[in-house]
Structure formats: structure tokens, C-alpha cells
Nucleic acid binder design. Sequence first.
DNA 1: CCAGGAATATGACGAAGATCATACTATTCG
DNA 2: CGAATAGTATGATCTTCGTCATATTCCTGG
Lengths: 232, 232
Amino acid sequence: MPKLSEAPSHIQVLRASHLMASLSEEHLLGIAGDSKLAHAERGELIWLNGTETNFFGVVGTGFVKMMRSTPTGQDVTTELMGPGQVFGLLGVIDGSGCPQSAQAVCATWYLQVPKARFLEVYDQNLILKEKLLKRTTHRLRNSYAMFARMSAGKVEQRIASILLILAESYGIEQGAEVLIDVPLTRQDISEMAGTTVETTIRILSKWQKSGLVATQKHRIILQKPELLAEMV
Amino acid sequence: MPKLSEAPSHIQVLRASHLMASLSEEHLLGIAGDSKLAHAERGELIWLNGTETNFFGVVGTGFVKMMRSTPTGQDVTTELMGPGQVFGLLGVIDGSGCPQSAQAVCATWYLQVPKARFLEVYDQNLILKEKLLKRTTHRLRNSYAMFARMSAGKVEQRIASILLILAESYGIEQGAEVLIDVPLTRQDISEMAGTTVETTIRILSKWQKSGLVATQKHRIILQKPELLAEMV
DNA sequence: CCAGGAATATGACGAAGATCATACTATTCG
DNA sequence: CGAATAGTATGATCTTCGTCATATTCCTGG
């Protein structure tokens, strides 16, 4: 039995979420009461594509990747959700379920918010709806941006793009360097870049040798972010 | 001067749009009155990425492609908008402008709806907001689906995917065959599939020879849609 | 502290597809 | 009607990257 990291409290998780935090104290407590805190190991599937779920998730600690499996069996990661981020919500709202799989990238605590309870609140909360549209708009744009980069560029550029995007969301600046504070394997990165592990390893090794990036304990440090940005 | 196809009326264009048609007659007429019907030749830019616009568009007749130019100069088409479809709306609503370029793929009539006028109506129309979220959700999912196909598959599969998706939106069934009723060049298709014209031509030529598809006057006919679907 | 599994690393090889070059075919315009 | 331009076609060559094979290193649990 692996030792679990400290579990966050229900209400803590909700408060840390930009989207959820816009609810009134009363609603927040109500939802927190009905939700269930769950833990997932690295690699554990939270749900499988298309599965009709009666809950959506809010990441507490750790990371969850949203992915689609292509007919040929290859997995492609479309989004990486970190602490405070909500996943599978859109499928709950329009009742069609989430077409993507959700999988933990590392030991992760997340909150399972039951559909019925949330919809009651959602239906009469205009601010929440506005926020959701804003967030969805933002995701759509990011998706198009990634789409363009992934379908046009060479593999090096794709990997560079991925690292830069991750740095934007989860980067911690350390002087001129940026630490991407997500425990990712080369396999994870290759799934985001739509390439193979071997190629990813080769490129990252090359970059390590030339002092572009460094890795420590599954965490990547961009030592020359500007140079990386130049090559995309 | 090229002879223009018959211009549709303002109100006709709005009524043909699923999104706009949900407005009240009064609002619809108001917006129609303030809008401007515009024409664009094949290849004409309607706006360039990021340009702050004071209008969004509704396609009347013809087609508009939304695209991003990568730093390396290659264009990638993310969406193809046909009659009744709205483009650039999200940028108007959140005031940030549209990050993509809009370009006519053929002679196109479209309506320019001024930002200010529309926002008045939008701000107090709940149904419209709901519809917009639904539409945006749908686009986001499509985008992820395409993303997965484009970053994983081989070029043949990518092109097959593109054709099937186009057939879904703009296909006219003719017995077992499907005519994609959009005038597209190989160049257009290659931009959607993220590949080169030459490769696209080679693959389509091969498919023509084997009776999978046929082309007439920039329009593609899927003769064996099932076979195409099998290969994605 | 050692064993075993997971992650990283590296080489050899081949196939897919980009690039360059050139020709052919339609459609449009003067 | 004939020239010009945009689109389609096809071959030759070179690169990139996927595939397979095999080490090596790093962790974690017993």
C-alpha cells in the first residue's frame, strides 16, 4: 500500500477552483457535503471515454490528463488538468457524458461532484453560466492553437510547444529558468506531442546535452525558454 | 469584374442561422437593419488573426475557412463555416477579438453584424446564451476529436477523416455515394489535413484510380464512404 | 540492501512523406 | 479565340521519424 499524500478537505478543493469559487457560501457547502473525495494512483483511469457518468471531477492535488484513444490504439492527450481545475463538467451539463477518458498522471486527490446536486445550483446561477462560457471559449481557442501547431510542425517544434504551454500553466520561474511543476514521463509528453517515446527521449536528451533543458525526478526545467520559444 | 451570384437579403441570412434564428422577430429585424451584407472573392481575407473587429460574420452563401498561420508560414485550417454559420462571435462577446483569420474559400456573401448592436440584445437573452454554450461545447469536442486524429494518424487517415467530416456537414447523399457540396481545391484539403498539396494530390489520385472517390469541378464525391470510414 | 519493474537511453534500419522540379490541364480574361 | 493563370499530376531525391532491438539507470517495495 503506497502512502497517500495528505487528503485535502472537500471545501478546500472547491474553494481552490476558480469556477466553483464563484458560488455562494451556502451552495458551496451544500455541494461539498454531497461530494466524495477520491484518490487515484498514477495511471489509474478515472473514467473511460463516453462512459455516462453521474459526477464530474475537481482536481484537488495532483494532475489528471484528458485523452482520446484513436482507432489504431494510440492514445492522444488533449488537456492536462491541475489543482482547482474541473473536468467532465460539460458532459454533465448537456447530459451526454464526456467523450474523453480521464486518467491520473500521478497520485491524485480529486472531488467527485454528483450531477444532480450540481445541476440544481447551476440552472439558476447566471454568473456561473457566464464563467463557464468564458472558460469554454478559452479552451476552444487553446485547442485550435494546439491543433495548428501539432498538425503543421516538425516533432521538435511540437515538443517545444508542449513544454512552453505547460510552462505557462504550471511553470515556476527560477531566475531565467522555468520549472514545470508536473511529474511527467517522456511517455506522457510523447502522447501530448503525438509522437513516440523514443523520439521524445532522443530530442530531450539532445536538449539536455546542449543545456536547453534539464530534468530532475520527472520534472522538467526549461533552462533557456527563449531559445525554445524561438524554434516553434 | 466577375459576375456575382445573387445576394441574399439580410433577414434571410439571419433566419437561416440556427443560432440567430432563436432571437425574437423584433430583435432580428433590428439587427438586420444595422448589419451590412458583404461579398468576398475566393481567397479574399475577411479579417486577419487577432485583428480587433467591430463585427462578427454570418455566412449567407458560400464558405469561409477559419485558419491560423504558423510561425513557419504554413496555414492550418481549423474550421470550415457554411451557410447559416456564425464566425468570430466569441471574440465579439469577450471583447478580445478573433485569434484566427477568416478567408473566403469561394465567392461568398456574408453578413457583418456590428458588435455594439448585437451585445445589447445578447446581454439580456438567456436562451441565446444557452445555445451559444451548447454550440461552443460542440465545437470544443469536435476540435479535440480532430486534434486526436490529426496528431496520431498517417496522412491517408487524416485526409480520410477530413473528407468524412466534411461529408457529415455538407454531404449530399446520392444513392450509396456522397457529394461534398463545397468547392475545395487540393490545397484547401491539404491545409485542413496539415500536409502538403503534393501528398494530397497523390493520395486523391490513387483513390480516384481505385474508385474510392471522384472529383468534378472542385467538388469531391465519396463513392465508397464505408471503405473510407474503415481506414481512419 | 537487493530484486524487479519502470523509465530512460541509444543504435540500426526502413518507410512515409516533404521538397524540388517539371509537365499537363482546365478555366478565366482580355 | 488564344494567352495567362490557377490547379492538378507525377517523378526523383533526401529527411525525418517510426519501429525494433537492446542496454542502462533509477526507484520502490520486500
